[in-house]
Design a protein around this nucleic acid. Structure first.
Lengths: 360, 360
DNA sequence: CCCTGTACTGAATCAGTAT
DNA sequence: GATACTGATTCAGTACAGG
């Protein structure tokens, strides 16, 4: 069995998440999903129009004496999360208007770099029984990288495919967790706030790789661990309540991982790196050839050292394209074209042709 | 012309919003809509796949030296907003993940009471050109009352009607502002972040009344003022840039207010009050009659003083219904039924029959 | 077996007015 | 400001019983 620091992987550990996080080495976790207490601050009872009582979230774990205490709690666990997260990793935190602004501000203050706020739009939320507000029909998930400059994992093309070949948007339409998926113990819901697996499916698939380590500091009913196992990731989860750990472990026993071969990111285009010089080597482009911008307003000539030169300015295909555009940087592959039989051909297409011929 | 403090109503005032807010008396504004700078922190230029430049928000008014300075700015104007807001009023603030957590936390810290976070889901957002994140397809609006205990205006039934007779939810599907609605000057968009009128239409209609005072501290292209005028509200707006004030004033000239008679909240239920004794007076129910709960498990007999008595417990229709249910309080009108020709008739229906006959 | 009607449920900061 | 009294209010989906 593999471990991380002194803690076993693919296991739910009992205890306070901050204390347990401290046992994890710096920069060792690929993905964090956190579903912390929301600090709902519900007052009295709520009855439906038919006089029945609403089974509210009144668990002790959601009670905080003040917003200051909630803020301190939030900063504590997020700080440790920042420390253990790899530079290539990212974190997701879910919440509602009760707590999400505290979480968001804390993330930013700790140096995390916000990537998206994704709204989980509930197709079947509980109504507002008293007619006092808009039906609170969504929750918010924050997705953030470790820092502004860090390179995070994101399977753009897979998400696009999942969304009918349109870019996956920041609004996700998913039903609340009910029916067969909802865990029950003696006919009662095992956990008051079990999240739908569909949510975690998208989170884990979009922002981690097979074999990665996924951490959940507030494991609860174990949805993160269950979906991580299903998707061939390693998980490490923390939970204070032994009852929830039992529930989650029973759940995990039933999970059958999806076969590795089915988990490959088949639609992710992994363009092999092709240095420009390779195209010259194989005479896709010859030294002395001219490159053109698409509108043919800019030209450059290919030099022997694979640099190109335009009106006395020389450099890489990228540098020169940026220079003629007056920009800091630019992608030369998509900027430059060669002329063959009077037609402009993108050098990016030549790169692909080269890769098909020599790199398969 | 009417004024508020020393400032003219239905006018856009040039200047810093905090300085101008200070000229407004305490508790004098019914509704605030604020579209503050988002502090986007965009670095460098963004180009589309075809190398054209994306016309990004790069206005000076969106630049802040640090998050601390942005926070201080946010607290400054929100504090004044809290002071000038009536106890019956509410505030809306729109933003994105760049700034909305700072705004939300500040609102909470200043004593505002969060009512909803409403997501404006863009039916036609700008794509994420680089394929590096989820398409940021929404913005977030926070709606808050002045304090936890304050009574705010909310036209529940109107919003329900507007939403095909289902409760209006916290997710609003509205296109971004483009086409005819988008203000242009010399072919260029007049303001980089003009909001769609549909958004303000819902905001103003849901949470203010005809004749109310609507304040916008960051007027910009004047959408709030325009919709307020259209909907028969008074507005007071602040803006630093004279250019935007010109644009907005030209826009306002064209706005024709909707006729008052069309602005009434016709679907808001104003049931005339009918005391139970009235039904006895007019013999819809007779002294000595029996009342039944719907399941007929509970019965009570009507007394001469309009109290009812059930198994030795006497009181109002409400008190007795609460007593037999073992609850603190209950609505007796919807709990009790009378039997006529063997069929149960709700006393709430009898009340309506009485009102139709005697109170028109 | 299917169809129908009833009961139940879900992260909810859930009342307003008069005295 | 506190207390007492009146009275307003639900959507989508699952589970199950009865026919």
């Amino acid at each position: 069995m593999s471990t991380i620091g002194s803690l076993a992987l693919n296991s739910i550990h009992q205890g306070d998440c901050v204390a347990l996080l401290k046992q994890i080495p710096d920069n060792s976790v690929d993905l964090i999903f956190a579903d912390p207490p929301y600090n709902l601050q519900l007052n009295g009872e709520l009855t439906r129009p038919n006089q029945t009582k609403v089974d509210a979230v009144d668990d002790e774990w959601d009670k905080f004496a003040s917003m200051e205490i909630y803020d301190a709690f939030t900063t504590d666990w997020l700080k440790e999360c920042h420390r253990v997260l790899k530079n290539t990793g990212s974190i997701w935190v879910i919440g509602t208007y009760h707590n999400i602004f505290r979480v968001g501000a804390s993330l930013q203050d700790l140096g995390f770099w916000m990537l998206n706020d994704v709204v989980w739009i509930k197709t079947n939320p509980m109504p507002n029984f008293k007619g006092t507000r808009f039906n609170n029909a969504h929750e918010t998930m924050l997705w953030a990288a470790k820092s502004e400059k860090s390179k995070y994992t994101f399977h753009y093309h897979s998400m696009k495919t999942m969304n009918d070949d349109l870019q996956m948007r920041s609004d996700w339409f998913i039903p609340i967790c009910q029916g067969e998926e909802r865990l029950k113990v003696n006919g009662q819901k095992a956990h008051s706030t079990q999240k739908p697996e569909e949510l975690l499916y998208r989170v884990i698939l979009s922002s981690s790789n097979v074999g990665d380590i996924v951490l959940d500091p507030f494991s609860g009913s174990g949805t993160t661990a269950a979906v991580a196992k299903k998707l061939g990731r390693n998980f490490i989860a923390f939970e204070r309540e032994p009852f929830y750990i039992d529930v989650a472990n029973n759940r995990l026993k039933e999970i059958i991982p999806i076969k590795d071969s089915l988990l490959e990111y088949k639609v992710e285009v992994k363009k092999p790196k092709v240095p420009f010089i390779n195209l010259i080597d194989k005479e896709f482009i010859k030294v002395g050839d001219f490159l053109f911008s698409k509108d043919e307003k800019h030209t450059a000539q290919v030099q022997a050292d694979s640099s190109i030169e335009s009106n006395g300015f020389a450099g890489s295909i990228h540098k020169v394209s940026a220079h003629v555009l007056g920009k800091e940087s630019n992608n030369g592959w998509t900027f430059w074209y060669v002329k063959q039989q009077g037609k402009l051909i993108s050098i990016d297409d030549l790169r692909e042709a080269f890769a098909n011929q020599y790199l398969r």
